[in-house]
Design a protein around this nucleic acid. Structure first.
Lengths: 159, 159
DNA sequence: GCCCATATTGCAACGAGTCGCAAGTGCACC
DNA sequence: GGTGCACTTGCGACTCGTTGCAATATGGGC
């Protein structure tokens, strides 16, 4: 999938998140620290940006081929509950996970060229505010995904 | 799934769409009129509002138990190409089809109580306009799905 | 009314993701 | 260092949806 994310696509960069304390946080919630979770967390700690569930499973499998999908998805749920992750659905409906603390943001997806951009809070203010005003609805920006046609493709089609 | 759609949940109501002419429209595009398509179109003609692919398959099966899923999905694609349908992805990422010509609209989904509301063009103007201005991006309203927490659930949580 | 090009179907395999349940294991407590 | 509760895992079955391919059927042309 072609991406045009504004995040700095760092690879082995040091994690910014609270990964070192995950074990602690799990424990204070009565949750457990298992090898499987440790592996997924390690993978996530080296992930800066956006991944699909399937990608995460694949990465885990390069380390431990015995990785079971359902375990990964369940751990992802747990981690999301802890606020370390959030997920949304891409233009094709597939799950997409976002590691924190990349600032909360939504996505803009061009149906034509497949490129995805991030929408930061200030840009999304229009939606968030209007929904809050008109309906008292609190928009979950991290889950927002807007599809349509980007400027480039719009011009190409017009021309 | 609990719904609070603003559409009048009519059941056997007369179709508003261009269903009578579908055959004609198919033909002019070099496409064919088959029993399977006829069945799906009949089901759609009596559907006013929103359905998932799985629901459509089930309804087709009540008429013809031999209905094949892939055929339904492919026909749905064709019909969408003809502009008779549009689809988006619900809060859970599942496909959701909208029969036209219910005015183009997006959806607002409360993660807490599961209710879904429609967002009409005027309400969505904020997003559409701001994306158009800042990025030249043409938002596809029919595919827009905004998640978050509704007024009722926000209050309940605060209280 | 028949023929043929090709649009469609049916099928089977596959991929993403979810769920229930029995077996296994972390870790708090003693 | 042992014990036991209950959180987790692994597994198998299942749902929704997609795709490739061979077989079939539509419908325009003669």
């Amino acid at each position: 999938m072609l991406r045009a994310m504004s995040s700095n696509g760092s690879h082995g960069a040091a994690p910014m998140a609270d990964w070192p304390n995950v074990r602690q946080r799990l424990r204070t919630h009565g949750l457990r620290w298992t090898p499987q979770r440790r592996l997924l967390i390690e993978v996530l700690a080296h992930t800066d940006g956006h991944v699909t569930g399937a990608e995460l499973i694949e990465r885990c499998r390069t380390v431990d081929p015995a990785t079971i999908p359902s375990t990964v998805y369940r751990t992802l749920d747990v981690l999301e509950g802890l606020g370390l992750l959030s997920h949304s659905h891409g233009a094709d409906g597939r799950e997409e996970f976002h590691v924190q603390p990349v600032a909360t943001h939504g996505h803009l997806h061009c149906d034509s060229c497949g490129t995805t951009w991030e929408i930061m809070a200030d840009e999304a203010a229009a939606v968030v505010d209007s929904m809050q005003r008109s309906r008292g609805f609190a928009v979950d920006l991290s889950h927002l995904s807007v599809a349509g046609r980007c400027a480039g493709c719009s011009q190409a089609r017009a021309g």
